[in-house]
Design a protein around this nucleic acid. Structure first.
Lengths: 117, 117
DNA sequence: TTCGATGTTCCACGAACAACGAACGAAAGG
DNA sequence: CCTTTCGTTCGTTGTTCGTGGAACATCGAA
């Protein structure tokens, strides 16, 4: 497993972020993470194969939207909210509000986290 | 020439808008139109073939970002700023500010409008 | 009518992308 | 050791996208 690169805040590009957010599933993931909490990979429930979900997680990470941490065999993901707000003020809020209004990304939900009672 | 459809305000989707804005040239066009003025097709100067520019204009129109009016053989384009702000509050401003900060879409400029002296 | 200017549309190409299954690799437990 | 679990990576397939060139349609002017 590669060490999972994350771009620096300054290297996050607008087109990269917008492209990453132009997919409903990825918007759904961001919505789930919007409260700032860290989520385990397995908590996500989406109508795609796990390899596809892994791909989407990777796109979000490469675009600088999320940060991934690995702990043993599982990995956890968290939204880079602060850095994003710092770099693109208002963008995240606007997108999240619009997504909420459209109920975009509703296909992505949370499983009842197993083991984390 | 087709009558050029424009989506209703309510039919504008977030993913559509974000996808449309994930291309530097289209962001450049939006930046040029950001002051609300109506521009002639020929005023745009971009490093692409005219068919490609026409395609980008079409993508922006289909996504609901711009409105196209035809007058004789030329056509004019204007940003649907009010409607966009109404549907996705803050989104346009955030994107424009971010684009400004990155100088994204600088490849798109204005020719000195010929004939409109 | 004939010409030129202006955009649109069609077609084709290469690149990028989304999706899946399968194989792989790294812990953790038996 | 072997097995299970978890996530990545690979190979493939089909679709979409950006691009340019050529052909077409429309209007104004000569």
């Amino acid at each position: 497993m590669r060490p999972a690169r994350h771009p620096e805040v300054g290297d996050i590009t607008l087109t990269g972020v917008l492209a990453a957010l132009s997919d409903p599933i990825r918007v759904g993931v961001v919505r789930v993470l919007a409260d700032g909490s860290e989520r385990g990979w397995g908590e996500f429930q989406a109508p795609v194969a796990k390899s596809t979900l892994s791909h989407h997680l990777r796109v979000l990470r490469d675009a600088g939207l999320t940060r991934t941490r690995q702990e043993g065999t599982r990995c956890f993901v968290v939204l880079r909210g602060g850095e994003l707000r710092d770099r693109f003020p208002g963008l995240l809020e606007a997108v999240l509000a619009a997504a909420e209004e459209e109920d975009l990304g509703r296909q992505v939900a949370l499983k009842p986290a197993p083991g984390i009672t």
